[in-house]
Amino acid sequence: MVDVYSPQAIWGRELRHYRQAVGLTQAQLAQKVHFSESLISGIETGQLPASPEFAQCCDEVLSTGGALQRLLDWRKGQVFPSWFGKWRDKEQVATALRTYQPLLIPGLLQTEAYARTVLRGNVEAVAARLDRRGILTREDPQPPIFRCVIDEAVLYRPIGTAEVMREQLDHLVAVVGPRLSVQVVPHGMHSGLLGGFVIATLEGGSDVLYAETAVRGITTSDVEDVAAAIERFEAIRTEALPLTMSPRTDQEDGGGEMDLNTARWRKSSFSGDNGGDCVEVAEVDGGPEHKSGRLIAVRDSKDPNGPALFFTPEEWKAFLLGVHAGEFEPTP
Rank of each mutant, 00 (worst) to 15 (best):
V2N: 06
V2M: 08
Q8H: 03
A9D: 12
W11M: 11
R16P: 04
R16Q: 14
A27H: 11
A27L: 11
I40P: 00
I43E: 04
Q47W: 05
Q47T: 06
S51T: 15
F54C: 05
C57K: 14
V61Q: 08
T64L: 09
G66T: 04
L71T: 02
G85P: 00
W87V: 01
K90A: 06
Q92F: 09
Q92R: 14
A94W: 01
R98T: 09
Y100F: 15
Y100V: 15
L103M: 13
I105H: 10
Q110V: 10
Q110H: 07
E112H: 14
A115C: 05
V118R: 04
G121H: 13
G121Y: 11
V123M: 12
A125L: 15
A125D: 13
D131P: 02
L136Y: 14
L136D: 12
L136R: 15
R138A: 09
Q142V: 15
Q142I: 13
P143G: 11
F146R: 05
F146A: 06
D151M: 14
E152L: 12
L155F: 12
R157S: 14
P158I: 12
T161H: 08
V164N: 03
M165K: 04
D170N: 11
V173S: 05
V175K: 08
V175D: 14
G177L: 06
P178T: 15
Q183R: 15
V184L: 08
V185S: 06
M189Y: 14
S191P: 09
L194H: 11
L194R: 11
G195A: 06
G195S: 09
G196F: 07
V198C: 08
I199P: 03
E203W: 01
S206L: 11
V208G: 02
L209W: 02
T213C: 08
A214I: 12
A214T: 09
V215H: 10
I218L: 09
T219E: 00
T219A: 00
T220I: 02
T220Q: 04
T220H: 02
F233H: 08
E234D: 15
E239L: 10
E239T: 04
A240S: 15
L241I: 00
M245H: 12
T249P: 00
E252G: 10
E257D: 14
R264L: 14
K267N: 05
S268I: 03
S271E: 08
S271N: 11
C278P: 04
P288A: 14
E289W: 15
K291T: 13
V298A: 08
V298H: 01
V298G: 02
P304C: 02
N305G: 12
G306H: 00
P307L: 08
P313T: 00
E315T: 04
A318P: 00
F319S: 00
A325Y: 00
G326V: 07
G326T: 04
E327V: 03
E327P: 01
E329L: 12
P330S: 03
T331E: 07
